[in-house]
Amino acid sequence: MNDMITMDQLRPEQSAYIRAIGGSGALRHHLLDMGLTPKTEVTLRKIAPMGDPIQIELRGYELTLRLDEAKKIEVEDIHQKAQPKSPSESYRPIAHPGVGELGTDGDYHVHERGDAIAKGQPLTFALAGNQNCGKTTLFNQLTGAKQHVGNFPGVTVDRKDGTIRHYPEATVTDLPGIYSLSPYSSEEIVTRDFLMKTRPSGIINIVDASNIERNLYLTMQLMELGIPMVLALNMMDEVRANGGSVRINELEQTLGIPVVPISAVKNEGIDELIDHAVHVARHRESPARIDFCAESDMPGDQVGAVHRAIHSTVHLIEPYAKAANLPVRFSATKVIENDPLIGKALALPPEAQTALEQIVRVMEADSALDREAALANMRFTFIENVCAKTVVK
């Protein structure tokens, strides 16, 4: 066992396991949201010519960190990571179901529904995704020249709105590029406020197919809002060119939302994406899945600890969330993370606040992780399991 050091001291191609995440507040939460949770294996791949930043690999994707961020991450058990074997299986893509068609197991589009929105009635969509995932290109493909730019109220963050092609009754708002719905930047707050206060008819979530492990973290939080949603899997042409693929049908059955492969740059799959988005919005088909803790493979009792905490919190805060017009599941995960804005909006009475803190203490003791790390680890473990089954490198 090597002496404990910080991540900035690793040498290229050295691997280690994260021991602890230092810092506090927004910075620490940001690091956890990037997948840097305790016990995660990381490998240093590159160091910039001037020594800052560094590029690391973890959980199947690459991440760039500034040195001052890397210095806050304690690591242990330095080793040389074994090179993964090339996959020997070949994957033959199968047909992707059209709108309203059944998938291979017969349960495509099993969602909670409300009263359908009649054809011709106004529809509103939010376009959400990570930075550098092709969101601006997709927005332009969705709207063409029918768009205008302004600002969100009270901030200098750009707001772009447009009319979706072929559907004059449907408008889409291009939200800022973010990596999570944590309230630690103006872009994150603007996005979250728009989604929770405006409650659009649907969400179009664009995901970079070549970096799917990183992008799905935001997807999971969007799904917890309970808004009808479709996932646009962008840059599939690049994935195929590199010999990879994604099992689209299996991915959408696992997530419980339609998944449409697209190439925004080449205008491929855009019409199918629009049709799916309009379909789920008109029929008010909310995501079939918002529970991500039951099928994880976390060591020990981490799954059970997080699962029990979330579901206990849902029951505890449900009347307060409904009174505040907040999505219950999303509010439960956020209040466990000690999200200040959600906590303020819920306005829990003292006895409920005491019960919540007891739930969190039990979860931290059983999982051996603090409240923020436990939730981040739950989400990323689910993502790793999903990608292991559906992503062919």
Rank of each mutant, 00 (worst) to 15 (best):
G202Q: 04
S185L: 04
V157P: 05
V190H: 00
D208Y: 08
T219A: 15
N211F: 03
P183I: 03
I178A: 05
T198I: 03
T143L: 10
I206A: 13
G162V: 01
V157S: 06
G177Q: 03
E169P: 09
G202V: 02
T137K: 11
T171Y: 02
R199S: 08
Y217M: 11
G154D: 00
P183H: 10
I204Q: 10
T163K: 11
R192N: 08
I212P: 12
S185I: 00
T173M: 09
K146P: 00
V207W: 04
L216H: 08
N151V: 07
M196T: 14
V149A: 13
S210F: 00
T171L: 07
V172F: 07
E213R: 15
L218W: 02
L218S: 07
L218G: 09
V157Q: 05
V149C: 08
D161M: 12
D174Q: 12
N140Q: 13
T143S: 09
T198A: 14
E169T: 09
Q147R: 15
Y167W: 11
G144K: 11
L218P: 06
F152M: 07
T173F: 06
T173Y: 04
G144P: 04
T198V: 08
I204N: 10
R165I: 09
A209G: 15
D174V: 04
Q221T: 05
T198D: 07
K135W: 02
A209K: 08
R192H: 07
L218Q: 06
I203P: 07
F139N: 10
L142D: 03
D193T: 12
T219P: 08
D158Y: 01
V172H: 10
H166T: 10
I204K: 12
Y184F: 13
I204E: 04
V157R: 05
I204M: 13
S185P: 02
M223Q: 15
P183V: 01
N211C: 09
I204L: 15
T171P: 02
F152Q: 06
F194A: 02
I203W: 05
L195G: 09
T143A: 12
S201W: 00
G154H: 03
N211L: 06
I164R: 13
K160Y: 02
L222I: 06
N215K: 10
I206E: 06
F194G: 01
E169Q: 15
L175K: 10
I164V: 15
N205R: 09
T219M: 12
K197M: 06
I204V: 15
I203C: 13
D158N: 11
T163W: 02
P176C: 08
P176H: 05
D174G: 10
K135E: 00
E188Y: 03
T136Y: 03
T191K: 09
N211W: 00
P153Q: 05
D174I: 03
G162H: 05
I206T: 08
Y179L: 05
R159D: 00
M220K: 14
T136V: 05
N205W: 01
L181R: 11
I203N: 10
R192D: 01
T173A: 14
T143Y: 04
M223S: 13
G177K: 05
T136N: 09
T173R: 11
S186H: 06
V155H: 04
F194Y: 15
N151A: 13
T219C: 15
K146Y: 02
K135R: 09
L222M: 13
A209D: 00
T219L: 13
M220E: 01
A145V: 05
A209F: 02
L218N: 04
Q141V: 01
I204H: 10
T143P: 10
K146M: 07
Q141R: 15
V172Q: 10
S201R: 07
T191N: 08
